[in-house]
Every structure is written in C-alpha cells, then in structure tokens.
C-alpha cells in the first residue's frame, strides 16, 4: 500500500500537509524534484533553495513547508541548511552581494573594495541595509581571473575597483543591470582576452 511515510513518530514533529499552507507551485516543484532521485531525500538542498527563493530566506514557515511536502522533520532541514553558506536562516534583503575576500582577490585589493561596499551600502559584513541589500564577505567564488570580484544576486562581476563598488551599489539601488561591462560571462578565455589588448592588471587595485 502506498501511504505517505514519515520519518518519525512524535505527532507534531513532522508538519502535516493538512496543517501547513504550502504554495501550490512550491509543492509541485518539490514533488517533481524528489522524483528525480532514487532517494527523494536527495532533493533536500534544491528544495530548500527553491523555498528560500520564494520566501527570501528560510523562515521557520518556509522550512515547515518543505518539511511537510518532503515528510521529514524541520530539524533535519535546518541541520542541513545551516551547514551551507548560501542558506539564510535569518531574514535577508532583496539583494545579495557576496564579496570574495579569499587569497586571490585579497592579493588584488579585495579588502579595499569590501570597505567601499560597506560604506556604500551602509552596513558592515553580514548585515542587511534598510533598503534590503545584504552584504557579506565570501570565500573563493571561483573567479580569481577577475579578482577582486563579487557575486551580485548570483551574477559574477569583476575586476572591481573601489569606484566600481560605488557604481555597483548604485546600479543595485536603481534596480538595473549591475556593472554590465564587468560581467564574467561576457569575457573570453584569458589567451583571447589578453591578446585582445586589454591592459594588464586592468582595474586591479594594487595589493
């Protein structure tokens, strides 16, 4: 007999779908994602991410919704979520800036750019501004070729100068494409890029 299965007993440990108001689109998304794996639990991270996108952060309600559809405990989900850097268990803004300050970016002046970002956004590392910009230092984002760089709402931009930092925040506040000329995705591989005559160390803050 096919019945919904729960991983636990205690009556209130797994939220009941009947009691939790899960948005239809989220429920469908989660169910489809679970069906993609031999063990539906594999869908945990993608499903949490989807809920985070929908709610802006992994609020207790968001976690309960995922738990009710996946039939796992919310504790299991926060345990997983809190392990990963990209899950936000506290309320965050509309926009997210991850500023890389790992070695390669540090060597190209990331700390100065970060300081400028903090000034421009008006918050320090790990905080959200009143107008909803969340700024945090991040470990190597895998784009040291455009160091120092940042990921702005998932879009990689760099190399950033101190002036770029100001511009970046302005673009974000104006809800427009951020630093369009500095998108990583528009950049050819190094050999092509550099033979294209771009100045060496362009834009790099001296370390």
């Amino acid at each position: 007999m096919s019945v919904p299965r729960e991983v636990t007993r205690h009556e209130d440990a797994i939220p009941q779908l009947a009691d939790v108001n899960v948005p239809d689109e989220l429920k469908t998304w989660i169910e489809q994602r679970m069906a993609m794996y031999p063990d539906p639990k594999s869908a945990t991270i993608p499903c949490l991410m989807q809920a985070q996108k929908l709610h802006g952060w992994l609020s207790p309600d968001a976690v309960r919704q995922v738990a009710a559809v996946m039939r796992v405990t919310p504790a299991y989900l926060v345990s997983v979520a809190s392990f990963y850097d990209m899950f936000e268990l506290q309320e965050r803004g509309r926009h997210t800036i991850y500023m890389c300050t790992n070695i390669s970016c540090m060597l190209r002046g990331a700390d100065a750019v970060m300081a400028e970002l903090e000034a421009a956004v008006g918050v320090s590392d790990g905080d959200v501004s009143d107008d909803g910009i969340f700024l945090r230092r991040f470990e190597c984002l895998g784009a040291c070729d455009i160091a120092p760089m940042a990921s702005v709402d998932g879009v990689y931009v760099g190399p950033l100068t101190v002036d770029d930092a100001k511009q970046l925040v302005e673009d974000l506040r104006a809800e427009r494409d951020v630093l369009p000329a500095k998108h990583l995705t528009k950049r050819p591989v190094a050999a092509t890029f550099w033979s294209g005559g771009a100045p060496a160390g362009s834009g790099a803050g001296e370390a």
Partner: peptide, 21 residues
C-alpha cells in the same frame, strides 16, 4: 530512535547541538 529532532546545527568550530527553531 530516528526521530530526527536533535540535530547538529552550523558547521566547523561553530557546530552545536540543537533543535528546530
């Protein structure tokens, strides 16, 4: 017991034992 209620939160040196919310 497979109740999945007592869990580890965060990671590394900040890891600690806790529950949901």
């Amino acid at each position: 017991s497979e109740d999945y209620q007592l869990v580890l939160l965060d990671r590394g040196a900040g890891a600690h034992v806790g529950t949901f919310d």
